[in-house]
Nucleic acid binder design. Structure first.
Lengths: 221, 221
DNA sequence: ACAGTATTCCATGGATTCATGGAGGAGGAG
DNA sequence: CTCCTCCTCCATGAATCCATGGAATACTGT
């Protein structure tokens, strides 16, 4: 890399890349793609120490990928914009398509390919027909920060104990955070094991939002 | 970042980010976005030692962003696909929009904002009207690997000595690699200094190709 | 087989990144 | 003012990354 103005420009661009070059930061970015969260919440959700989470969040902020807002004593981090969400989505897409080990790791993490998936348009069609109910299995705060209009929220942790809340005469379309999120896979398996007809959305809420579909409940206090 | 399957998946995804986290690699990626090149060519174009260039190219390959093909004794590196070009474009877009220092470094590198720019559609319109001639000021090999149909190739280094090759009765639309490439800025300034009416394409060939416009001369032997 | 060219491999020292625990600072409630 | 909560800053040692020059490898042409 040359010194001088060009080198300086490239070095600045590389800051964005560096921010994406750490699994912990990617996990935080993935959480933030679902909605704004405080440092403590993010640390808990990602099973990180507070210092560690804070440091990584500041690295993301320094790279311009997230912004902060102070509410009293808590600091809320949020994605800097939908272009950042699109960047994160593109990274996953390229990695999935181009790195064989990513496909392997994804299969290990998501489990066997035994669940049926449908696209966003097919979901809309089935809901319009009254054939399907949409089930959001993400943790409660993420549902609250925004979800597919009409979806029912039952976090995956509580699903086993709340099966009777789901109307028995319709099929279920479960979704979660995005293409590499395990919750919807687990939900479909759990529902199928209880004799319910269930499929999952191919990707998740991030892709739904990026595709420009309407979002419910995204108000900020 | 948790251990286990999820941590493994995130670590794999981070490999793509790490590959983007170094200015030298970004420069190589930017060159490869213009077309396939050998190691020696890339090293020369980026002013790198051969060992250094080779090591970085292998890092990009390990992250799945580029592929290699052997032709006799030379190894040709190429972008793994247009999804990688789109990723690189998105990184620049986010960095430009979100990191103040990038905007500053870009202005320093590209020079004062004294050149008129037009979009791709406007370029097509002016060419269709016979009002404008399109000038490709990238180095010869990049023009050969693909260019805007009908464009004339005069590398920026040779432009000062080849001004008479450009028809005097039309205005010039100069373009180069992409949004952060300095050649077209320099070309417009040079032409204007010689009394020619010249504007530049807002971005460059990378964006032209990604937008799905036709490309000439991209044949591979 | 031999010489020549293009590329990769390897060893090295210096710089950067990382996780972590404890101190420090900012704001709110009493 | 004082405690309390939430978060940031700081120091540290281990791990990783980086540029570089010289040796080793792969292939071509003779």
């Amino acid at each position: 890399m040359p010194d001088g103005a060009k080198g300086e420009l490239l070095a600045q661009l590389a800051r964005v890349g560096k921010a994406l070059g750490n699994g912990t930061r990617l996990e935080l970015l993935d959480l933030l793609a679902q909605g704004p969260r405080s440092v403590a919440e993010l640390a808990a959700a990602a099973h990180l120490g507070l210092s560690t989470a804070s440091a990584h969040l500041q690295a993301l902020k320094h790279a311009g990928l997230v912004t902060t807002t102070r509410y009293g004593t808590t600091v809320e981090y949020a994605l800097a914009g939908d272009d950042v969400a699109a960047l994160w989505h593109r990274v996953r897409e390229v990695a999935t398509a181009r790195v064989a080990d990513v496909g392997r790791a994804a299969r290990t993490y998501l489990g066997p390919d035994d669940t049926e998936e449908i696209g966003r348009e097919e979901l809309l069609r089935r809901v319009a027909d009254g054939r399907a109910v949409v089930l959001d299995v993400r943790p409660g705060p993420e549902f609250a920060a925004g979800h597919i209009p009409g979806a029912v929220s039952i976090p995956i942790d509580e699903l086993a104990g709340r099966l009777e809340e789901i109307p028995a005469d319709q099929e279920v379309v479960a979704y979660c955070r995005g293409a590499l999120c395990v919750f919807s896979h687990d939900a479909v398996r759990l529902l199928a094991a209880h004799g319910r007809r269930a499929v999952r959305l191919t990707d998740g809420f991030l892709e739904w939002r990026l595709a420009g579909h309407p979002v419910a409940g995204a108000a900020r206090p």
